[in-house]
C-alpha cells in the first residue's frame, strides 16, 4: 500500500474540496487576525491597537483560570475514559445478534445533540424531578450542582464519561476485532494468563487506535461548549466555565471583537501545537512499524 505514484495532477482532485474548506476556514481565520489587532467599534470606526489585546488576554486572570480548568478537565476525562473504554471493548461480544445489539446501544449517547445531552443530565441530576439527584438526596447525600462547585465538577465529568466513553470503546473494539484468531490459539496453547494475552497480544494491536482515541478525545474535550453550558451555565460562580464558553460569552455576549479575536488566536495556536505533536506521533508510529506488523 506504500507504493503511491508521484503525480502533481492529483491537485485537480483535491481542488474542489480545497475551495470549500478555504471558504469556511481561511477567510474567517484571516478576519480573526484582522480583528485581533484593532478596536472595531463599527464598520467605519476602527483603530489600530497593535499587540495590546494579546497582552491583556495573556495576562487575564479569569482566562488563565479557565485555561487551567480546561486542561485539568481534559486530563481527568482522558484518565477515566481511556481505561474504561478499553475495558468495555474487551467484554463486548464479538459476533452474533448480541454484538449488533450491544454496538447500537453503546453508540447511542454519541448520536444525541450536544445540548440535548446537557438537558438530559440537567433533568437527571435535579433534586426534585431527576432520578439521580432524587436518589442521592434519599440516600442522605447533600448533592446540588447549582450551589456546590465540587458536585458540579463531578457531574460534568460523569456526563462527559457517559457521553464519550462509547467512542473510545468503539475504537478499541474495532482494533480488537482485527487480531487474527491464530494469535489467541497460540496463547491458549501456551497457557498464557489473561493479563499476558492483554499485555502482549491485545494492547500492542490497540496502540494505533488508542492514539486516535486520545487525539479525538483531547480535542473534543478542549472545545467542549454546549453540554456544560446547558447543564451548569458555567457555574456555580465560574467553577465550570471552560475556554469555549469564556470565548463565546466575550464574542457574542459582549461583542468585544478585538479581545475575543486575540483570545481565539491564542486558543487556536495551543490546539495547533497539541494536534501537531499527536499527528507527528501517529505518523512516526506508522512509519516505524515493521512491514508485517510484528505486534
Amino acid at each position: 500500500m506504500n507504493n503511491k505514484v508521484p503525480n502533481n495532477r492529483a491537485w485537480l482532485l483535491v481542488l474542489p474540496m480545497l475551495v470549500l474548506v478555504a471558504f469556511s476556514a481561511i477567510i474567517p481565520l484571516m478576519t480573526v487576525v484582522n480583528y485581533s489587532v484593532q478596536d472595531v467599534l463599527g464598520p467605519n470606526a476602527r483603530f489600530f491597537t497593535g499587540t495590546e489585546w494579546f497582552e491583556s488576554m495573556l495576562n487575564d486572570n479569569a482566562l488563565q483560570a479557565a485555561f487551567l480548568r480546561q486542561i485539568s478537565f481534559s486530563l481527568i476525562i482522558l484518565a477515566i475514559q481511556i481505561p474504561l473504554g478499553i475495558g468495555i471493548a474487551l467484554i463486548m461480544p464479538k459476533r452474533g445478534w448480541q454484538a449488533s445489539a450491544v454496538l447500537i446501544l453503546i453508540t447511542l449517547p454519541l448520536l444525541i445533540p450536544w445540548n440535548v445531552v446537557g438537558s438530559i443530565w440537567q433533568i437527571f441530576t435535579r433534586g426534585d424531578i431527576g432520578l439521580m439527584g432524587w436518589g442521592l438526596r434519599e440516600l442522605g447525600v447533600d448533592y446540588n450542582i447549582t450551589r456546590n462547585a465540587g458536585d458540579a465538577w463531578v457531574t460534568i465529568v460523569l456526563m462527559d464519561v457517559w457521553h464519550w466513553t462509547p467512542l473510545v470503546a468503539m475504537l478499541c473494539y474495532s482494533g480488537l476485532r482485527s487480531i487474527p484468531e491464530a494469535y489467541y490459539q497460540a496463547a491458549r496453547i501456551d497457557r498464557a494468563s489473561k493479563w499476558a494475552v492483554f499485555r502482549y497480544i491485545q494492547l500492542p494491536k490497540l496502540t494505533n487506535v488508542l492514539v486516535i482515541a486520545v487525539l479525538l478525545r483531547f480535542m473534543h474535550s478542549f472545545m467542549i461548549y454546549a453540554e456544560p453550558f446547558v447543564l451548569t451555565g458555567g457555574g456555580p460562580g465560574s467553577a465550570t466555565t471552560f475556554l469555549s464558553q469564556s470565548l463565546t460569552t466575550m464574542a457574542v455576549g459582549q461583542q468585544d471583537l478585538g479581545p475575543s479575536a486575540a483570545f481565539s488566536l491564542i486558543y487556536f495556536l495551543v490546539i495547533l501545537l497539541v494536534s501537531w505533536v499527536f499527528y507527528t506521533t501517529i505518523m512516526h508510529m506508522q512509519k516505524d512499524k515493521p512491514p508485517h506488523g510484528g505486534a
Partner: peptide, 13 residues
C-alpha cells in the same frame, strides 16, 4: 487542524 478548531473561534467571522 480544521477538525480540531473550536467552532467558537470562527463564530464572529
Amino acid at each position: 487542524t480544521n477538525l480540531m478548531a473550536p467552532p467558537a473561534v470562527f463564530l464572529l467571522p
